[in-house]
Amino acid sequence: MLKAVILIGGPQKGTRFRPLSFEVPKPLFPVAGVPMLQHHIEACAKVPNMKEILLIGFYQPNEELSRFLLNAQQEFKISIRYLQEYAALGTGGGIYHFRDQIVSGSPEAFFVLNADVCSAFPLAEMLSFQKEHGEPNSFVILGTTSNRKQSMNYGCIVENEETNEVLHYVEKPSTFVSDIINCGIYLFNPDIFQHIGTVFQKNQQDMLLEEPTNGWHRAEAIRLEQDIFTALAGQGKLYVYKTLSFWSQIKSAGSAIYASRLYLNQYHTTHPERLASNKEGGPRISGNVYIHPTANIDPTAMLGPNVSIGTGVTIGAGVRVRESIILHGATLQDHCCVLNSIVGWDSTIGKWARVEGTPSDPNPNDPYAKIDRKGPCCDQSPQSTTPCIG
Score class of each variant (00 low, 15 high):
D179W: 01
Y267I: 04
P173E: 13
S248N: 06
E75Q: 09
V24N: 07
R99L: 09
S277I: 12
Y96L: 15
E42A: 13
H39Q: 08
G254P: 09
C336R: 01
S248P: 00
Y290R: 01
R274P: 00
L339H: 12
P107A: 10
G304T: 14
C388V: 15
N306R: 02
A301T: 15
P136V: 10
R284M: 11
I41S: 04
M126R: 03
L2Q: 08
L54R: 03
E162I: 15
D100I: 03
P27I: 10
E210M: 14
G10M: 13
S381F: 11
N363R: 10
L65N: 05
L55M: 13
L327M: 13
L54W: 02
H217M: 15
D179N: 14
Y241C: 06
A43P: 09
K172H: 10
E211S: 14
P305S: 09
H292Y: 05
L113R: 00
K13M: 12
P212L: 05
H39K: 09
R320H: 11
F121D: 10
N160V: 11
P293I: 08
I6L: 01
N189P: 00
S341T: 04
N49Y: 10
F200P: 01
A231I: 10
T300H: 01
I222Q: 06
L7A: 06
P30M: 03
C44H: 02
S104C: 09
E159V: 14
Y86A: 12
A32Y: 01
E52I: 10
N203G: 15
N363S: 14
R354M: 14
Q73G: 05
V199K: 09
V24K: 11
D206P: 00
Y258K: 05
G215D: 07
M302I: 14
P107D: 11
P173S: 13
G304D: 14
E273W: 07
E165C: 01
A253D: 11
V240E: 06
S347L: 03
L262R: 09
Y82K: 05
I325E: 01
V289G: 06
F193C: 13
M36Y: 02
